[in-house]
Amino acid sequence: MMKFIIRRLLSLIPTMFIIITLSFFLIHIAPGGPFSGEKKLPPHVLANILKKYHMDEPLGAQYLRYLNDVILHFDLGPSYRYEDQSVNGLISATMPRSIFLGFVSLLLSVALGGAAGIISALRQNKWQDYLSMSVAVIGISVPLFVIGPVIQLIFAMQLHWLPVTGWINSRAGWVTLIMPAVTLAFPYFAYIARLSRGSVLEVLRSDYIRTARAKGLKESVVIGKHVLKGAMLPVVSYLGPAFAGIITGSIVVETVFQIPGVGRIFVQSALNRDYTLIMGDIITYSAVLVFANFLVDVIYGFLDPRIAYK
């Protein structure tokens, strides 16, 4: 097991290296640069700025300098756009907010989605099933940039129950979390509900459940001990990509609800050609993605006795 974990961890290194190299050169191919604007800078002013950031050097030399800074010093460089701030500082300030929001949303979607899925399966083709599956269809098919503004319109603009935007450090406090977390959770709730319904139904028809019932076990024990444990496997394997997706996919929600998270600066940095910040975001996102997948692989091993690591 330990061997597997180490091997799996080591394989992350070349993945990250390829991502860094590819994105570094792709970004520099994109037309335009961080210092262009409607009013063009006089050549000597631009030369001073390029020199300050070592951008007057050949691209290869810049790449080596960047690799050196990132690998040896964990230094993602200064942001070209936010001149008083480093990329490390920007990401470490914004990333925890996105992770926190993602975590709350995921918790919501697992709890509610799982419950809805199980109830649907146990009451198959009854009204409970139809209701939760209808809600799930809405969650899957209506995009976030519609759900977000609609609940904003209802709960903030019409009912005045919640502030339009804000984050937990604002005057309004924790209630600011409600709308963004619910919005972000919606599609994942829907997916998990459908996933768990399907897998509970499948397990209910399996032989070992029939055996359990034949043994005369109480229905609550059959469901609680045998059905759920088996049925949750697909949900768990979905959690890794879901967690990565919920963090990297929170861009829309962060924009609609003005959450100072990492998703918003990602989009802005690309538009601003803020090379170092784009690179920093890409590296962080990739790290989250590959690490989440790695964790799922490991957890899977604990849950499913059929999988053996060699």
Partner: peptide
Amino acid sequence: DPDTGAQYAYMIGMVVKGANDFNSFA
């Protein structure tokens, strides 16, 4: 100062004598 890399240095350069020369120093 060229080392500052200030974008709006040119604003001073537009009106103040000797400003552009200093800002252009390499």
